[in-house]
Amino acid sequence: MNDALDVALRLLLVFVVFLTFPLIIGQTEHKVMAHMQGRLGPMYAGGFHGWAQLIADGVKFAQKEDVVPAGADRRIFQLAPAVALLPYLLVLLAIPIGPGEGAVGEVIDAGIFFVLAVMGVGVLGSLMAGWASANKFSLLGGLRTAAQLLAYELPMLLTAASVAMAAGTVSLPGILDAFEWWWLPWQIVGAIVFFVAGLAELQRPPFDMPVADSEIIFGAYTEYTGLRFALFLLAEYAGIVVLCGLTTVLFLGGWHGPWGADGLGWVWTLLKTAVLAFVVIWLRVTYPRLREDQLQKLSWTLLVPLSLTQIALTGIVKVVIQ
């Protein structure tokens, strides 16, 4: 009974995080992006600096009509947002925010593989949406999504493998237990490659060719309205949470910090995640969208060699220090 209660509590907590953190990041994006462009951003909803803007957006989405195009494949069209969103909920289960069993949704032995595998499944949602919409722009968006995923899955996996090699385990809490501060310079290249590849996999600017609104009018999501569209947006921001959390755990030492007692590890995790989320927004504001061939070139000629170099470096150092 106690076990069941424990599991239920953890699931509930993860669910709450899943529902609130993406909204917080979305609101931060509204405000940070506005100020980086010399604007103020939302100021009215909720009274104080537009804090309730996304809640108002949600209400608006919920009121909209749920339209399925006449030529669309109805069932796949309707299923796609769930396929896009749920994997991130599962991934959140595996990310530890503090030391010990109590601070992670569920300890998974092959944590890295679980996380990367399930994140890859999320892209299926975009593919399904792109194909089932019966819209050529959506189809183009789906194609671009698939090409992007294929190009960036490899460097992501390789750099994650580098960390796993360094730690000697593929379990996320295990990696954090083995973390030392000098891993930071040691794995810095891998960290950057992982972060960039993750951004590309989330289709965040500057890697947002699949949803390029000015070229292919939001790609796979062209035909979506109302709640289903909101689910896709939520998936994107949940993806940011997951990516930043993962980068924190794998490369930035998670709950380890220069100061702070044992009980405050989760503060460090959240702080690092928040800083990374800010960087995600910052990159979005700063850089223009890459062209499709530039995107492929970046992955194959820069990120993959860099990640291979990182693996080689990790292996050499690992052998030397043993």
């Binding site: 499944v121 189809l139 294929l150």
Partner: peptide, 18 residues
């Protein structure tokens, strides 16, 4: 999941869409 669902099926869908 990683190889088959995440990559092989995506490749398959890519081909089907093409």
């Amino acid at each position: 999941v990683l190889i088959y669902v995440g990559s092989v099926v995506v490749l398959l869908l890519f081909g089907l869409m093409l």
